[in-house]
């Protein structure tokens, strides 16, 4: 076969391969939507993080604004320090409230940021002061059953008198 023909086909093949890699990176992966280079770090202390994982999304008003990058357990205070990277485009007030929420009834867990009214903005490395732990389903059910039981005891007591 002619040298030029081979060169042409190989060139097309390599271009197709690199094109496929670009499609995977930009269309399938999250490289196009969110880059770690333009982000700042925040930390939050939670009593219980439930099923939160590294790479879980951080959302505000339902929009993904960042990702959890690190979760550490402190042996001094016995709680969890969650580090998250937030997109530079989004600044949050100092009194922002961070809570661990669940998408859907049994869906994945994420950190929800509710902005406060403070004038000053959170800077990279700052700690979020107001946090709300994850709701653990077992504890909720336990609490509910306990309440029900005490309620029915009350009503039985009422019927006696």
């Amino acid at each position: 076969m002619q040298r030029a023909t081979i060169d042409l086909w190989v060139g097309l093949f390599v271009m197709a391969g690199i094109g496929a890699l670009l499609i995977l990176a930009l269309k399938v992966g999250n490289l196009g939507t969110y880059s770690e280079a333009q982000s700042y770090t925040l930390t939050g202390i939670f009593e219980n993080i439930g099923g939160l994982k590294v790479r879980s999304p951080v959302k505000s008003a339902g929009v993904v604004v960042g990702r959890v990058t690190d979760i550490q357990f402190s042996t001094k205070t016995f709680d969890a320090a969650v580090t998250m990277k937030i997109d530079k485009r989004y600044a949050f007030p100092k009194d922002t409230f961070a809570s661990i929420l669940t998408s859907g009834l049994l869906g994945e867990q994420y950190i929800g940021l509710a902005a406060g009214g403070d004038e000053g903005m959170l800077k990279s490395g700052d700690k979020i002061m107001k946090t709300n732990s994850a709701l653990v389903l077992e504890e909720m059910i336990g609490q509910f059953l306990f309440d029900k039981a005490s309620e029915s005891e009350d009503s039985e007591d009422d019927s006696k008198f």
Binding site: V14, A16, G17, I18, G19, A20, L21, I23, L24, V28
Partner: peptide
């Protein structure tokens, strides 16, 4: 050289 390119084409076509 060709193996990673082929696998990338495979994944992209599969998606």
């Amino acid at each position: 050289i060709s193996m990673p390119l082929l696998a990338a084409i495979f994944s992209a076509m599969g998606i």
